[in-house]
Write a protein that binds this DNA or RNA. Sequence first.
DNA 1: AAATTGCGCAAGTAAATGCTTGCCCTTATA
DNA 2: TATAAGGGCAAGCATTTACTTGCGCAATTT
Lengths: 119, 119
Amino acid sequence: MLALIFASKYLRIMEARRDVFQAIADPTRRAIIGMIAKEPVNVNTIAEQFDVSRQAVSLHLKILAECGLLTMKQQGRERICEAKLEKLNEVNEWIAQYKQFWEARLDKLEMYLAKIQKK
Amino acid sequence: MLALIFASKYLRIMEARRDVFQAIADPTRRAIIGMIAKEPVNVNTIAEQFDVSRQAVSLHLKILAECGLLTMKQQGRERICEAKLEKLNEVNEWIAQYKQFWEARLDKLEMYLAKIQKK
DNA sequence: AAATTGCGCAAGTAAATGCTTGCCCTTATA
DNA sequence: TATAAGGGCAAGCATTTACTTGCGCAATTT
């Protein structure tokens, strides 16, 4: 019984969700992605742009790195963060499968509006 | 000082993030979206598909409704959930602005692979 | 060599999240 | 009309999240 509890706890820790959906849910992390998308930037430069502590930003970077949205490379005493946005494709594909639904709805709306306008 | 703390607390509560990014971050909620995308379904039918309690599912539905991804309508004693996926477009557009970056990378990789293969 | 810069690693905290159980009210069915 | 089915509301709990402050260490500058 106790073992089970420990096991489940352990499993939960191991499974700690670090997926892209989770990563981009946070507005600060989306802003970070926006910052590094065009060119690699070092940690402190990123941190300066936000009004939270460097540590907080550092944690966000860690999360982004863990789910594959960026890589870090050491360069002297600096750590350069480089965006690896391929992983965004996972979200892109999830969304894509539903596009037909909302686009169909919009089409219907458009047709309806056009019809109204004719009268 | 105290007023400030209360004010900030109050603001935080009022601002409670209920955006689409947040909403789709949860795997259960994504699964719910998958269930109701094609046709409206009532609450209990949705809840039966998951191994969490009806209350838990109900909360997920509430969150999805609050951020506009579904609407509920009462029908006798049942509440029918209907997907309104237009809001997904917000995510879609956010992603779209970065497509060039990861696609450019993939193109480069493709070209590189093609080059290697030729040799 | 001394001071500064860049940045990770804890430890601690408040709030948010995800879930449960229990209760209650309404609508439908036997 | 009694019972069942659909489903909201609220309290309570464990975990996670987002953040802070303090410390320390290695690479640079002065």
